[in-house]
Write a protein that binds this DNA or RNA. Structure first.
Lengths: 338, 338
DNA sequence: ACTATAATCTAAAACGTTTTAGAAGTCAAA
DNA sequence: TTTGACTTCTAAAACGTTTTAGATTATAGT
């Protein structure tokens, strides 16, 4: 059985509250008692019971991360992995737990409510933000602390860390246009995600800025996997008038697109240019190296977690809304059109 | 403020224990009262307080995963990501929390003890198992439930899920020898990890079985990153008598090795053959496709979690020690030597 | 010597739940 | 009409901690 305050109290011949306060270093305990109690506690290997403490304090000292879609956990996405590592680094350092769970779309909101009502967590981190996000609305209504990784389409009166995806893709389009491309294709994730939507907007903006027409068939909307990237790219490459450059809106899609191009016998960076977004490790390792937009995934994780922790602890928050600009990394997957 | 049993009790005009037992469906409560209480509870949106319940039950309903090395979180490793997704799937389904934290090597054991003593978790999942693993010894001494992903070198009297790495690499060596290779190099992670050690053993066994000599300089021990794979491969390729095949002991190392070979102007699968281990998604996507050993990472995660949950719940355990054989996947990174 | 003040401690309550032991009431059998 | 058994409920205690309010003792000031 674990050592409790009562055991220590019995041993030192004092009351439980005295022991509690001695260990906490309150000044209504004599230095002599304090030191003695602390020594005994240490010797007995005392560690406070987590739940008793939390019940009393009415704080969970925990951050919740509820992953959308049980089947779709997305841990194979290296970007998400790095984001998570940033989050864990900060929460661990702050002595808080990170409670990860999964919820299917139907009962997602219920799971949030249960977490709140059972006082399991003090705040949430929201990922894969939608343009209209019910989770965010729910949390705002209930005045519960959270930080979203990504904004909504409007009404962004909450704490978030986000990329400037629109701006980023504009840089990509500029880069391709500078190289001489005039017929650009685009592969996107579902548009209900703000992230995807913003990036597509960047694509449109880029075309418009460079006086290029947009054609519907040049935009393929799919999911986030490489496999889908490959299929989407095949569709683009098989068009009667195929694009000479493909703007994939994340690196995994881009890698899939590279594979597709190679299957069609095209030299990537020459016969066709392909770009990504995120700069996962893989982007550097692929052949050819992928031209993409670098994002500090780990850093973003720390920012999200930091803000949430500050909210929870009622500390002053330096910046409650952070938008980071990605940086263009040019590698060999882009070149002049032949 | 959250709704408590007391609130419901006041409303229905019964005592708190009655409400508690009515909600739990005990049969010493009349059906009439039971239904009424349940209806009222539902209407008031009652959710039990997590910590009160856990304090009383003396169960955490949580599984701990303490990641070794704070700086080295390894979330960028897709294999680990998949393993994690399997774990989360099972723990979520069992209604248990997964508590993830990180600990540096110095205070790793203390962190384990604190988790145990504070009754924060009911069991642990051990990853990156060492040949002599202090964590496992600690948990055994304390008779605390755990499942290890990977065995120790000996004295494996505990629950684990593991690969048969030795057998796997033997298949790889056989495959290469069949193709005609006689000079094989090997790139390994640090040998204190059982996983790495077993795989190296497979390499040795394979050579011996095929009557090939082993030379020290053909084995490079490094860490798990691509970068290291590249450097190690360069060292092998620059030997006076360079190997015609490189057995990298994980896929990331292999990808790095492919990169190195390409830098040296070699055609992989022709001038030099390269193999991996794990079959991460990337293995299929790389050019050339990587010959490797497939492992069901997600499935392994579910097995680990399942066993632990069964231990915790005192359910019967189908299999407490599971060793899975990886399956050889031949792609284009291996071929006859020229 | 008496009072005010400070120093040190403790009893009691609280957090919200579940378990245990037993009370109160109902009903049937003797 | 008493006994026993059963049904339905509740009081009290428990889990381990912290907070609040107050008790006790020592110390100093007059």
């Amino acid at each position: 059985m674990a050592v409790t305050l009562k055991h220590i109290a019995d041993k030192v011949g004092k009351s439980v509250p005295t022991v509690s306060r001695a260990l906490a270093g309150f000044d209504d305990i004599s230095p002599k008692t304090r030191d003695y109690v602390q020594a005994v506690a240490k010797e007995m290997g005392y560690v406070p019971n987590n739940f008793a403490r939390k019940l009393q304090s009415q704080k969970a000292d925990a951050v919740g991360l509820i992953l959308p879609g049980a089947e779709n956990l997305r841990f194979s996405d290296p970007f998400f992995g790095l984001l998570l590592s940033g989050i864990i680094e900060k929460t661990s350092a702050a002595g808080m737990d990170l409670s990860i769970s999964a919820a299917s779309e139907e009962d997602e909101l219920d799971v949030y409510m249960e977490h709140i009502k059972s006082q399991r967590v003090d705040g949430f981190i929201i990922v894969r933000t939608h343009r209209e996000d019910k989770r965010i609305e729910l949390l705002r209504e209930n005045d519960f602390p959270f930080v979203s990784f990504g904004r909504m389409e409007s009404d962004n009166d909450f704490h978030f860390v986000d990329e400037d995806g629109t701006w980023g893709i504009e840089q990509i389009v500029d880069h391709l246009v500078e190289l001489g491309h005039t017929n650009l294709g685009c592969i996107a994730e579902p548009l209900l995600f703000t992230k995807s939507f913003s990036r597509v907007k960047g694509f449109m903006n880029g075309l418009e800025k460079n006086n290029l027409p947009f054609s519907d068939e040049n935009l393929v909307v799919t999911n986030y996997r490489q496999r889908s990237g490959r299929e989407a790219a095949l569709r683009l490459l098989d068009l009667p008038n195929p694009p000479t450059a493909i703007v994939a809106l994340n690196d995994l899609l881009a890698i899939g697109a590279i594979q597709a191009a190679q299957e069609r016998g095209l030299v990537v960076g020459k016969n066709v240019s392909i770009t990504g977004f995120d700069d996962i490790v893989l982007a550097e390792m692929s052949t050819p190296g992928l031209t993409t937009l670098h994002q500090p995934a780990h850093k973003m994780g720390t920012l999200v977690a930091q803000n949430l922790i500050q909210q929870i602890k009622n500390e002053s928050i330096e910046q409650s809304q952070i938008v980071l600009k990605p940086t263009l990394v040019v590698r060999n997957s882009t070149g002049k059109p032949v």
